[in-house]
């Protein structure tokens, strides 16, 4: 998914990573300690997570931030 912010574009593969683990958005939200809507917003590119949340995502998926988010 991609999000356009001015000329800056961020994409992520959260949906794919989540699907690989058969996690629902609610499952991931629970692990992150956020609402399901938050996961949905990040996943669909409608909201860019802060650095702490991005680190948390990276830790949960056992990946580097760059593996999850890219330009």
């Amino acid at each position: 998914m991609r999000v356009q912010q001015g000329e800056y574009t961020v994409k992520n593969n959260l949906r794919q990573l989540r699907a690989e683990r058969s996690w629902s958005q609610a499952d991931l939200a629970e692990q992150l300690g956020v609402s399901r809507q938050s996961v949905n917003a990040v996943e669909t590119g409608r909201f860019d997570p802060s650095l702490p949340l991005a680190f948390k995502l990276a830790r949960i998926f056992g990946r580097a931030i760059e593996d999850i988010f890219s330009e």
């Binding site: 956020v34 609402s35 809507q37 990040v42 997570p49």
Partner: peptide, 8 residues
């Protein structure tokens, strides 16, 4: 509020 998206 710990959820930054909800804060927004």
């Amino acid at each position: 509020e710990p959820d930054e998206f909800i804060r927004m």
